[in-house]
């Protein structure tokens, strides 16, 4: 009887299911796969002032990328993204922990406040940061008015400004996956650890960190990878020396008009990210063997 009914429901669901699948796959094919294939193709072509790209097929673009200058940009970019990730983790971890421990109502409010900034374009929010940090911006004027400093500090167009901007934009992406693992972390496990003789520090190292590791890794992925590409943050806050890989790519497309070279840089960045994601998955799978609660 039950089996029969279930089969009937599946029959009714079939058209809906097919429709959804076609929509999703169509979307992915048209807007993800095809553009990516175009970029891959462009990266093997030659620059043309009139049509942007033309034959012949070449590996020249990739060879130019091996220039130590670009390696330096990549490493500096990785460095800034790593610092950003670390700062996000140091702020986000205790925040997410506290968030999972407050009452349900306050929790909703805090998550809401975390999400509100998403409603404003991130470009606009970055300009707002610029206004705050400018030489005669809000912070400098405020501190001078209070007599804390005598002359304006230089904040804008520094590496620090870029990192502040990146942290500001990416922090929620660190907090949300961490919040989800802390929310699943059973308080009883911490009590059990104390009960068996572990102090706060031991409990943190042996129980809290291992059990929140999936959230840490997810947060790191969600911050580190975008941090390499958010070109408009250095554009607005960073001046000419604090470039991200994203800036190089954007400059090739929009300023230098060298599409094939920009495409090759984009492909390399994508490959680097894919490698990171792959390592992440491997470690996830190993944790997953015993990690489910």
């Amino acid at each position: 009887m039950m089996k029969h009914r279930r089969r009937m429901f599946r029959g009714l669901r079939q058209p809906f299911r097919t429709g959804v699948l076609v929509l999703v796959w169509g979307w992915l094919l048209a807007l993800v796969l095809v553009p990516n294939l175009l970029v891959i193709a462009a990266s093997f072509l030659t620059r043309d002032p009139g049509t942007f790209i033309s034959l012949p097929v070449t590996l020249e673009n990739y060879r130019s990328l091996m220039d130590p200058l670009y390696l330096e940009v990549f490493l500096h970019s990785l460095y800034m993204a790593s610092v950003t990730t670390l700062v996000c983790l140091l702020i986000g971890y205790p925040f997410a922990w506290a968030l999972s421990r407050v009452g349900k109502e306050r929790q909703l409010l805090l998550i809401f406040l975390l999400i509100v900034p998403f409603w404003t374009n991130s470009l606009v929010r970055t300009y707002a940061l610029k206004l705050l940090m400018a030489t005669n911006g809000l912070i400098n004027n405020g501190l001078m008015a209070l007599g804390v400093i005598d002359e304006p500090m230089r904040m804008l167009y520094t590496e620090g400004a870029v990192i502040v901007g990146l942290v500001y934009l990416l922090l929620p992406f660190m907090i949300l996956p961490l919040y989800s693992v802390f929310d699943d972390l059973r308080q009883e496990l911490l009590l059990a650890s104390h009960d068996l003789g572990a102090g706060r520090f031991s409990t943190f190292i042996h129980v809290v960190v291992p059990l929140t590791l999936p959230g840490i890794l997810a947060g790191v992925m969600l911050v580190l990878l975008p941090a390499m590409g958010l070109f408009f943050v250095p554009d607005i806050l960073g001046g000419s020396r604090n470039l991200l890989v994203g800036n190089v790519i954007k400059n090739q497309f929009l300023d230098a008009r060298d599409w094939p070279f920009g495409a090759a840089a984009a492909i390399l960045l994508t490959l680097a990210m894919a490698l990171l994601l792959f390592t992440h998955r491997l470690s996830q799978r190993r944790l997953g063997e015993g990690g489910d609660l």
Partner: peptide
């Protein structure tokens, strides 16, 4: 952690 006693928890609280 300093008490010479131990607890068996209702849902066991084993470290997963």
């Amino acid at each position: 952690e300093q008490r010479p006693l131990n607890t068996v928890f209702q849902n066991y609280a084993l470290f997963p």
